[in-house]
Amino acid sequence: MTAGCKWIGPPYGSTPMTPPDISKLIVRTSMKDRAAFDVLYRQTSAKLFGVCLRVLNDRADAEEALQEVYVKIWTKADRFAVSELSPISWLVAVARNHSIDRIRQRKRPMADIDEAVEIADPTPGPEALAVAGGERERIDFCLDELEADRAAAVRGAYIAGDSYAELAERYAVPLNTMRTWLRRSLLKLRECLER
């Protein structure tokens, strides 16, 4: 930290990052503050790499995607101001959308798709415990109100970025049927969450 950076505020990283800090880091990144961008990367790259890796199932591909995600964050950080998302959710959305776009460009799925990354249902980590009793439980509760295979399809689509075509094949139903099922499931899910 040089003396010239003093006006930015307290030294970055000296205390555990809280959401307001990530908000400010994104806003400052939108103002092309490179020091803020570096701290933002340090604080959030593990989470976003987890997203890229989970969707793309290939380490080299995920590393390339993560680069592009942070280039996007640098150039489009001003969009955060008009989003209602929490800062970390906004960053995850950038990483998810980019990774899903990237996987759609692939001609064929990776041959070793199941070997590249563990696809086991994740156990709650520190982050999940931190928000225990909150939104996670609500959405779990509402997903449980759906039929089990439809809840699994919603989760699979969101977490892994499965396409309608892939889901239709897996569940052996026509694509339009899968679309109808998921649209209805999403509506029920939203109604439950808004209750």
């Binding site: 989470k47 590393e63 995850v92 959405i139 989760r155 969101y158």
Partner: peptide
């Protein structure tokens, strides 16, 4: 995005290799 964001907890953090940040810096700066 807001409605489905709680599902993001299903993503486990994985530390990326240092080469990624170096590549980002090369691309941007």
């Amino acid at each position: 995005d807001v409605t489905l964001a709680p599902l993001n907890l299903g993503y486990q953090p994985v530390e990326p290799p240092a080469s990624v940040k170096q590549a980002i810096d090369r691309r941007l700066f």
